[in-house]
């Protein structure tokens, strides 16, 4: 569960909040809104990459407001993917597992399993600088989920992909969410993506956040809370 309680983020002259919302445990939430409204800022605040000027952020009931980014149990896929240029695909998938000091055999099994699910088994020894857009996307996703995070944050992960690759990654995201039930917050501008993936929908408009509960179709959604 991701919870914002009167969170204020100040970045230079840009100010967001106070904002309050709640994303349910295991939900797949999409965050929509025009460019420049502060969607990425919300994700960065959850990650701990941007300090908050007021309010509290709770993950699974625990106040993580002052915690270091690495202690929050988050998998993050930024918009530009930000792969590590000097590392191979395998090193990306092993990254958080090694930091968690997992056994070698366990790391190997996890990398094999993940690369199968993501369809990048044949790329494991390749440098990430030699990957296509879709392949890079899968590696970034793999890096984010390999350590079994409690929360997955995706910043417009499909925006730079062609239609066909986009549908593939769509399916992949659905599959990952179904199998892991990880609480996910996904920023998108696409209504289609929201309809296909969301179980909960948030809309940021003029600094106000609307939270809607979604079941199978976003069009059937009903506003459950308006906070700002």
């Amino acid at each position: 569960m991701i919870e914002f309680r009167d969170v204020i983020v100040q970045a230079g002259s840009f100010r967001l909040g106070p904002i309050s919302f709640e994303i349910l445990q295991g939900a797949y939430a999409v965050l929509m809104g025009k460019t420049g409204q502060g969607k990425t800022t919300i994700l960065e605040a959850i990650c701990g990459l941007r300090s908050v000027a007021g309010g509290r952020i709770l993950l699974h009931g625990e106040d993580v407001t002052g915690w270091r980014p690495g202690d929050r149990g988050i998998g993050y896929v930024p918009q530009d993917l930000a792969l590590f240029p000097r590392m191979s695909v395998r090193e990306h998938l092993e990254f958080s597992l090694k930091l968690q000091k997992r056994e070698k055999i366990e790391i190997r099994h996890r990398v094999e399993e993940l690369s199968d699910v993501l369809g990048i088994g044949h790329l494991l020894n390749r440098s990430v600088q030699k990957l296509s857009g879709g392949e890079s996307q899968r590696v970034a996703l793999g890096r984010a989920i390999s350590g079994n995070p409690d929360v997955l944050l995706l910043d417009e992960p499909l925006s730079a992909l062609d239609e066909e690759t986009r549908s593939d990654v769509h399916e992949l995201l659905k599959r990952i969410h179904t199998s892991t039930a990880v609480t996910t917050l996904h920023i998108t501008h696409s209504e289609r993506e929201a309809l296909a993936l969301a179980t909960q929908r948030l809309e940021l408009k003029d600094g106000q956040l609307q939270v809607s509960g979604v079941t199978t179709n976003a069009a059937d959604s009903q506003t459950t809370g308006v906070t700002a």
Binding site: E44, C47, G70, R72, I74, A82, F84, F95, L99, R143
Partner: peptide, 9 residues
């Protein structure tokens, strides 16, 4: 990239 590495530990 450094930010992402920090979120991972």
């Amino acid at each position: 990239a450094e930010d992402v590495a920090r979120t991972l530990g």
